[in-house]
Design a binder for these strands. Structure first.
Lengths: 242, 242
DNA sequence: AATGTCAAGATTGCATACGATTTGCCCAAA
DNA sequence: TTTGGGCAAATCGTATGCAATCTTGACATT
């Protein structure tokens, strides 16, 4: 099995291709591939394969995989390799529980700092979302998931707390994985209007309302998932998770 | 300058010295040294030095330093090396803002799951805290900071959300650094009684009250810090921090 | 005295080599 | 046919070597 065609090697923009760590670029590229579901959960990412794909040595490939492991996007098994994470329903629940905790706070911080320019930027982003929403096909759906995540990330950026921003980075990435895994197909489209509603409340300076809307939004996302005990796939999972 | 005497090479318990990643053990050891302030902020941690200290190659030492960089406990500069983080007051504020967001949620989750055994364990921990509190000297003070952090970590563990647990791990570690840097000496002792109060509320199953107490506790910790613009030290800092 | 230039030393960035561990296959024996 | 053992391939874990980059100190120049 060859993963090469699944990865877009030019994900990183030229100017971001800094003279610095190539491992960072590789991480980004793999991250995007994973959260777009171009790399399915369980896919093996061997050091040598990743290395030769990006034309670097195992050392730097390894560094990228270590970072992804730290973020929870891949899991490594000793002497076996790294695999794209296959989050369990329990993990999924914890991810959303974390988001329910953090995002209202982010909204509350954002309402204090958001500028008209930010609002305009958000509107652009929401248009993009809508565009993908109206398209059909798996590519558009992936783009929609990504765009939807970007909304939350932009919010975190506006809130101005770099630590929470990093937490959200991780949570959104893992959420994308979870949605791709457990999402029921049709319903994610309702997310867009909820984003709009949150933004409207923010624009009016009504942080209370924005936070409430955000919680409902997260609830809806989670409610759209099918988090029953995993059918079939793994007895290993059944055992390891009790 | 030699950092060897600052690091306790036997920090990790024998059974935790798993046949696995030695870099993990090194990370733990350095982490402890940093949050105890045996390694002062700004201290350089060169790969070869760390490597020879723990008797491993630079490769392994490097992996440990990368993990610490990911956690925000060290900062790496390209082609220069890794340095123990020197968190700015702004960073400190963001750390505590994050904690104010997350910890009430952890308390709320913990109250649902805490067992009598957990309570007993907490009481033991609080006794330990008290012991250090009554001792004098910098060593006792460091131990007190560490014990105080452990209380919050135990709470996160009881809450049962591994993601939040990891976030708290990072936040508590960085808080320790911040407290050591900006803490006014005398006042941290009030923390102990607040921990006790939180635990009492938890034992009674009063999650509301426990969460409120926790927020106040965090407020008090932050209020005890001196987060004014850093006096004197650096024009370099003044520039880089705006 | 202050500043600019340059070379030596130190340190990281990266690649590669070798050893250890695991996996999977093949074949023999029941 | 099934089970068990052993060997080969693959992969990771680690050490080390070389090149690139940065710092530092000395020295010359203004």
């Amino acid at each position: 099995m060859n993963i090469s065609e699944k990865i877009n090697l030019t994900d990183t923009t030229p100017e971001e291709r800094s003279p610095e760590d190539r491992s960072m670029a590789i991480r980004e590229s793999l991250r995007n591939a994973i959260i777009d579901r171009r790399l399915a959960p369980g896919t093996k990412l061997s050091e040598s394969e990743v290395g030769s794909l990006f034309d670097v040595s195992r050392t730097v490939a390894r560094a990228a995989l270590q970072m992804l492991a730290f973020e929870g996007l891949v899991k490594t098994e000793r002497n076996r390799g790294a695999f794209v994470s296959n989050p369990s329903p329990e993990e999924a629940r914890q991810i959303f529980a974390s988001r329910r905790l953090i995002e209202p706070g982010i909204v509350a911080a954002a309402v204090e700092r958001i500028t008209p320019e930010d609002i305009a930027e958000f509107r652009r982003q929401l248009n993009e979302e809508e565009r993908y929403m109206n398209e059909r096909g798996p590519a558009a759906r992936r783009a929609e998931i990504k765009a939807s995540g970007d909304f939350h990330l932009m919010l975190a950026s506006v809130a101005g707390n770099v630590i929470l921003q990093r937490f959200m980075d991780e949570l959104v990435a893992r959420s994308s994985l979870v949605i791709a895994l457990y999402g029921r197909s049709g319903v994610s489209s309702c997310g867009h209007s909820e984003h709009t509603a949150v933004l409207d409340a923010l624009e009016k300076g009504d942080g209370e309302r924005a936070a409430k809307l955000m919680i409902h939004h997260i609830d809806h996302i989670e409610a759209d998932l099918d988090l029953q005990v995993k059918q079939g796939l793994g007895l290993k999972d059944a055992l390891s998770l009790g």
